[in-house]
Design a protein around this nucleic acid. Structure first.
Lengths: 194, 194
DNA sequence: GGTGGACGATAACATATGTTATTAAGTCAG
DNA sequence: CTGACTTAATAACATATGTTATCGTCCACC
């Protein structure tokens, strides 16, 4: 959720490598909780292999906020930065290999990064990227029907549809599993008479 | 949308004051476009008086993304940072007094700010704040019905309901004006037999 | 080889929300 | 004052989505 800049700003990779020794490698099964709802985030999590979701509990019903895959970083950002209880939990969907970087080292890394040339611009761009993601999710809810949102997912991020069980996707789209099933069958029908 | 830190980080006010001479004061009527959709954002906008909205056009129908009031800053963040066309437009709702700070000075100010002690932590907190706002908007759509979202607005940000015309609020909640009207009358009925 | 659980499809019905049209009140320029 | 315009409420109907229940398939586990 913060700095998966490895591909975007290659000149920063040296910093990442420098902090590798402080990262703890973990090999975990599916449905492993990496951060509990209500706990304060203590680690920045990097995914080497597998698939992870960010979700919260609403009256016993789980609502999925975001999915993460290989070479992406996850953290409950607000909790991580401000040392407050996390509104969301983080859980593996598939068996996964992850690296945990304790917060103190992550902060230390950022302090070092700030001494880099052009870091202000890079930092702004990184945050613009994250913020744009959430603004677009938000806009999509104002603008699109659940069916359009699912079609979008199919077109823009098909790997999610392929790898993630349907009930997680339903909660991410903001509909019931029953209705997502209806949407899928409606789309399938539309495609039969081609 | 970026640094309305005046109240949050008072030690940074000196920087703000230093750049005051580069800001252009404007006194504008209601329904003035401050940034057109598709144009590249060139200014950071600070609101001294009045009320402003961020919105986009969807097949001739306007969808409101956010409202801004006194002592808040507005910009189309992604466009401002990455020099790309803005997905959204910015328009005054009420007659307003605003200050425009050209982008070059805003960037320059950030570069200077970076030399401040503890700036990394402050910057992270500022961004966590903005990001949390959008994540919460997003979560609210997954979790709540339009009626709950309106009740939330009434409780958490009543000034919006008081100052903003209803059709803007409807487009912000993601419903039609007709349905918002229904929601209001339903709430009113609920309150009559107290 | 069975068995229980997770996952997904579907049906029937209830509720929420959109669409279109009509009416009324408020505002503002002439 | 009057007419045009904006804003808001309401009704009638159409469509989308939720709820509950049932069924079938797949798969890990005993």
């Amino acid at each position: 959720m913060l700095f998966h800049f490895s591909n975007r700003f290659p000149q920063l990779n040296a910093f990442w490598d420098k902090y590798l020794p402080f990262q703890k490698r973990m090999d975990v099964p599916a449905k492993t909780i990496l951060l509990e709802e209500g706990k304060i985030s203590q680690n920045y999590i990097f995914i080497e292999k597998g698939c992870v979701r960010l979700f919260f509990n609403n009256n016993g019903e789980e609502k999925t906020v975001q999915f993460f895959f290989e070479n992406e970083g996850v953290t409950s950002f607000d909790s991580f930065v401000n040392n407050i209880p996390s509104q969301c939990a983080i859980e593996t969907i598939e068996p996964a290999v992850i690296y945990m970087l304790p917060k103190q080292y992550a902060i230390q890394m950022i302090e070092e990064l700030m001494l880099e040339r052009d870091f202000a611009q890079m930092m702004l761009q990184m945050f613009a990227l994250r913020q744009t993601h959430y603004v677009n999710e938000f806009i999509s809810f104002i603008r699109d029907t659940p069916e359009q949102r699912y079609q979008n997912l199919l077109k823009e991020r098909p790997h999610i549809v392929q790898r993630v069980p349907q009930h997680y996707i339903a909660s991410y789209l903001g509909v019931t599993t029953v209705h997502l099933s209806r949407i899928k069958s409606k789309i399938a029908k539309g495609k039969t008479h081609f």
